[in-house]
């Protein structure tokens, strides 16, 4: 029966059929590992499930109402936006400056590229712990010992509600620069040389070349980095989990991002329904921000 049907198909149809056959594996994987849990978490967010009990009682939007009144939730949401608002622009600016200057080098380009990329290859957990030790008070911490050499009072860094968040941002930016520099370099290589030659003939200054040629032509690269960078900062977790005591995002929740609050609610306090409600909200936020960025930044294309 199948054989008969199969033989009736044209060669093109047969090829397409084979194509879909091979696609089944990743499709099933995606449906099972990505879409099913995503859809399921929408449902769980409407229940009071606590991981260990067998029943998931439907409680409507109670979780969302509770979230609205939860000051820790608003605090963590605010922290998440602080990470992205301070982190992302600084990250993009530094990466561009570095890439722009490396790109001008005649010699040693590979070495610089490698040096900047190595932090990105290092395990984020290891990076976080090394930085955590660097920030320690005297006698352990290198930063504070360094400050003390110059007679500057030691800084609390991770132990202060105001300094902790920037202290966690620093290694995050340091790591992300590696990735962004590489992408910027690839983008810079893609700018046609003849445009600069034409500009030289017209007597354009370096600044004019930068703002009239380089940056406009890097728009697709920038869009890509802004979108992926935003998502990365919105999902910041590993650094905070490893750099604050017992992964609590302290002191007093001053560094706790939304994702860490979700994790602690789900896997430490076992409030799966509540955590799922937050996940749904994070999903909506990421979706809105990404669509907005794509729309605004791609306007001229």
């Amino acid at each position: 029966m199948f054989k008969k049907l199969f033989s009736k198909l044209t060669i093109k149809q047969k090829q397409a059929l084979w194509g879909y056959l091979f696609l089944i594996v990743p499709m099933i994987f995606y449906l099972g590992v990505r879409f099913y849990p995503t859809l399921n978490s929408f449902y769980i967010s409407l229940t009071d499930w606590d991981i260990v009990s067998k029943n998931k009682n439907f409680i409507g939007i109670s979780n969302y109402i509770e979230l609205f009144h939860d000051e820790v939730f608003w605090k963590t949401l605010g922290n998440t936006f602080e990470y992205i608002i301070y982190g992302l622009p600084l990250n993009l600016f530094l990466s561009f400056v570095i890439a722009y200057n490396i790109n001008k080098l005649r010699y040693g380009l590979t070495i610089y590229r490698t040096l900047y990329f190595i932090p990105y290859l290092t395990s984020l957990v290891a990076v976080s712990w090394v930085w955590r030790w660097l920030y320690q008070p005297i006698p352990l911490g290198i930063f504070n010992n360094f400050l003390a050499q110059f007679g500057i009072a030691q800084q609390p860094f991770l132990e202060s509600t105001s300094q902790a968040l920037p202290s966690i941002l620093a290694p995050t930016i340091w790591v992300q620069i590696g990735f962004q520099v590489i992408i910027f370099l690839a983008g810079l290589k893609g700018v046609p040389k003849y445009l600069y030659e034409a500009a030289d003939i017209d007597g354009a200054s370096n600044m004019q070349k930068l703002f009239r040629i380089t940056i406009p032509l890097l728009r697709p690269t920038i869009v890509f980095l802004v979108v992926t960078g935003s998502i990365r900062y919105l999902r910041i977790f590993t650094q905070v989990y490893n750099m604050t005591y017992q992964g609590e995002g302290g002191p007093l929740n001053s560094t706790k991002p939304l994702v860490l609050y979700i994790y602690n609610s789900a896997f430490r306090r076992f409030e799966m329904g509540y955590a799922s409600a937050m996940t749904v909200i994070l999903f909506v936020i990421i979706l809105v921000i990404t669509l907005f960025q794509l729309k605004v930044l791609n306007k001229h294309d």
């Binding site: 132990e159 202060s160 509600t161 005591y245 609590e248 302290g250 002191p251 007093l252 430490r268 306090r269």
Partner: peptide, 20 residues
């Protein structure tokens, strides 16, 4: 009933006095 949360309230109390 929830050892982790019940411990957290005391470390937070310390931070509230010292940091805030």
């Amino acid at each position: 009933v929830d050892e982790m949360s019940q411990r957290q309230v005391w470390t937070d109390a310390y931070d509230r006095v010292m940091l805030e």
